[in-house]
Simulated assay, not measured.
Amino acid sequence: MLPNYFDRWDAKGLSGHSKTIFDALDSLVNELARKYFRQHGTDITNSLRDIWSETFASWFTEAKWSKSGFLPAAEEYLETGMTSIASHTLVLPASCFLSPSMPDYKLNPAQYESITRLLMVIPRLLNDIQSYKKEQKEGKTNFVLLHSKENPEADIEDSIAYAREILDRKKKELLEHALTDGFNDFSKPCRHLHLSCVKVFHMFFDSSNRYDSNTEMLQDIQKAFYIPVEVGAPKPLLPHSGSRQRYPTVVASYHFDQRYKNRIIRLAENSVVSHPISGNPYMKMPMAPKLKFCFM
């Protein structure tokens, strides 16, 4: 089985497509590890392998569930599903090459920060809320479907609402961890990369299952790569007429203390003085009104 080869990271005995997949990932991991070693002097090869091994193990677990018809508990499914969505598999290695870099020990699956676990669970919930119909037809497990089965008195909309409630709570936690200092050892660029990845999944699954659609993302792709940004022509500044303006009387009540309670300060009406600018008699602008204060 392919996950076993990734677990021990040894391609001996593999052939065909499995060998191609293993060799491609092995090449990717080695390339990233060499680059990181040149920059930081630390070997992260085994850490990168562990992330991919963990991801393949989760894919294999879900494949076994689907093939055998086994239905795990919703919480057990979510623990596996948040790994199989593989968002952390992309973000954590990329975070190693930001500046400042992510600490290399954060690549250890046993030491994932809360923000990383939030990055993992939010895309899974987004996906499952929008794709439960498709996965039900394909005989796959899904958090919404499992919750509905565990709660027969509730209908599918209740299960969707339950998943959305968890999702909303997790998104608030992610924003707090991403935008506030002191929650973890990640630098601001690392935290923002976590947030950006979640935004991508939000684009895919917020209102529908756009990820599996052949057409719904076309307009977004066009805007991102092909359609030029439209910048409107700047509006010309209108020249000042130079006309004299009158400012109305402004009355305001101010409570200084008990002695002057309800006293009124009156801003006396005054004319605007037209004043030439830089010796140009045609360019005039209003001057601020003179203030006269009187206590009534």
Rank of each mutant, 00 (worst) to 15 (best):
I115Y: 00
K170L: 02
F97S: 03
I115A: 01
G242F: 11
K149G: 01
L167G: 06
V250N: 12
P3Q: 06
Q39C: 04
T249M: 14
L179V: 00
D257N: 15
K261S: 12
T116R: 02
C96M: 15
D128Q: 04
T61N: 10
K235C: 09
V272A: 15
S15D: 04
I221D: 04
N214L: 09
R117N: 07
F186E: 01
E76K: 09
T83K: 14
S99T: 15
K35S: 12
L179E: 05
P123E: 00
E269H: 09
H202Y: 13
Q130F: 06
K137S: 10
K292D: 15
K67V: 05
C197G: 03
P276N: 01
P289V: 02
E165P: 00
E165H: 07
R263C: 07
N184L: 02
Y105P: 02
T116D: 03
S47L: 12
E157P: 03
D50R: 15
D128I: 01
P286Q: 00
S148Q: 15
A224S: 13
S18I: 03
D181A: 15
N280D: 15
T45D: 05
W52L: 14
D26C: 04
F183M: 04
D181Y: 12
K284I: 11
K172S: 12
W9K: 09
L32T: 02
L119G: 02
I221Q: 08
I277V: 09
S213K: 10
I160V: 14
